[in-house]
Simulated scan of single mutants.
Amino acid sequence: MSRVLVTGAASGLGAALVARFVADGHQVLSTDVGADGSAPYLKLDVRNPADWDAAVAWCQDNWGGLDLLVNNAGIATGGRIEVETLDEWDRVVDINLMGVVRGCRAFVPLFKRQRSGYIVNTASAAGLVHPPMMSSYNTVKAGVVALSETLSHELRPYGIDVSVVCPSFFRTNLADSIRGADSAMAATARQLIEKSPRSADDIASVVAAGIKKKQHLIIPDQPARIAFWTKRLARPLYDRQMRKIAARAHQRATDGR
């Protein structure tokens, strides 16, 4: 039985992962920004270093350590480069990238003392392939991918494993977190999320299997895998597809849609 902490556990992929871990017999500490949650639950704002310190203390006091940290909390964002504001950039960097950095920094000393531990960071297919009109989201998710690869090598001598999860769109309430000046981009993102044939439970099932195998790069759905391998093996085709997406977005903006 493993001791597991999941951030962003109140909904979406976080909640689905918690349910999967519990069903598999693990001890799970759910964390999120809200004050209330099902026990065991801890309020944790990934932007707040004091909350991270409290999470480490909770794991030490109640469990004597931690086996698996899942840095899953995040928000959706995006927009054309001249439309999305710098405040929006600051917000998504602080949550989606620095929230993961803070989590790793908080728990790595404990893992090193244990000479064991496992970090799983939720990124996105947007961390591997980079569609237009998603500069901020692509950038932070690519940062999570880079951080995860770096730490997978850096922490290996201490017996610490690292994985990164890169799904494409799936049904969740993530679209509710979109705030920003580019309302057209927000509407497109919401449509892609809400009309996806994949649920959070579908993604969680594949992610859990990848964690059991300690796969470094976990790409849990076919559209994300196709996009990833198209970029790597058929770059001209990938570039043409990205330019088509950009052209359609330009036409919508020109038409006022």
Rank of each mutant, 00 (worst) to 15 (best):
L155F: 06
L128T: 04
R179L: 02
R179E: 01
V165E: 08
A123L: 08
A126Y: 12
R156E: 14
N121K: 05
I160P: 15
T139R: 01
S177Q: 11
G127H: 00
G159M: 06
N173M: 00
P132F: 04
G127Y: 02
L155G: 11
A125R: 05
S177M: 09
D176E: 14
T188E: 14
L147S: 10
N121I: 08
I178T: 12
Y158M: 03
G143D: 11
A175S: 13
R171D: 00
S148K: 09
G143V: 03
V164C: 07
K141R: 02
A142C: 02
G143A: 08
G127W: 01
P131R: 03
L147I: 09
A189C: 11
M185K: 14
T150E: 06
Y158H: 15
V145A: 04
T188D: 11
T122I: 14
V164S: 07
R156V: 02
H130M: 12
L151G: 03
G143K: 03
S152L: 05
I160K: 14
M133R: 13
C166K: 00
N121Q: 05
R156W: 10
A123K: 07
D176W: 11
T188L: 12
S183H: 06
V144W: 07
A126V: 07
G180I: 05
V164T: 14
I160V: 10
R171K: 15
S168F: 03
P131H: 05
Y158W: 13
H130Q: 12
F169N: 11
V164W: 13
P131G: 14
M133K: 09
V165P: 02
N173I: 00
S152C: 13
N173S: 14
A175H: 15
S148E: 05
H153Q: 14
V165Q: 03
S152N: 09
T172A: 10
P131M: 02
Y158I: 00
N138M: 04
P132M: 13
A189I: 15
P157Y: 04
A125Y: 05
P131I: 13
G143F: 10
H130Y: 05
V129I: 13
V144R: 06
T188S: 12
P167I: 00
P132R: 12
S124A: 01
F170L: 07
S136D: 10
A186Y: 06
P157D: 09
F169I: 01
G127V: 03
H153G: 13
H130A: 11
S136G: 10
V165C: 06
M133Y: 13
S163C: 10
L147Y: 07
A123S: 14
D182L: 05
S163I: 05
M185R: 15
E154P: 00
S135H: 10
M134I: 06
V144L: 09
N121C: 04
V140N: 04
T139F: 08
A184W: 00
V164P: 09
T188Q: 09
V120C: 15
R179K: 14
V120P: 03
F170I: 07
M133G: 06
P132N: 12
G180T: 08
T172D: 04
V129W: 03
G127R: 01
S136C: 10
D176M: 15
A184K: 15
R156L: 07
L174K: 07
S168Y: 12
L155E: 04
M134W: 03
S124H: 07
F170K: 14
V145M: 04
V165T: 03
L128P: 02
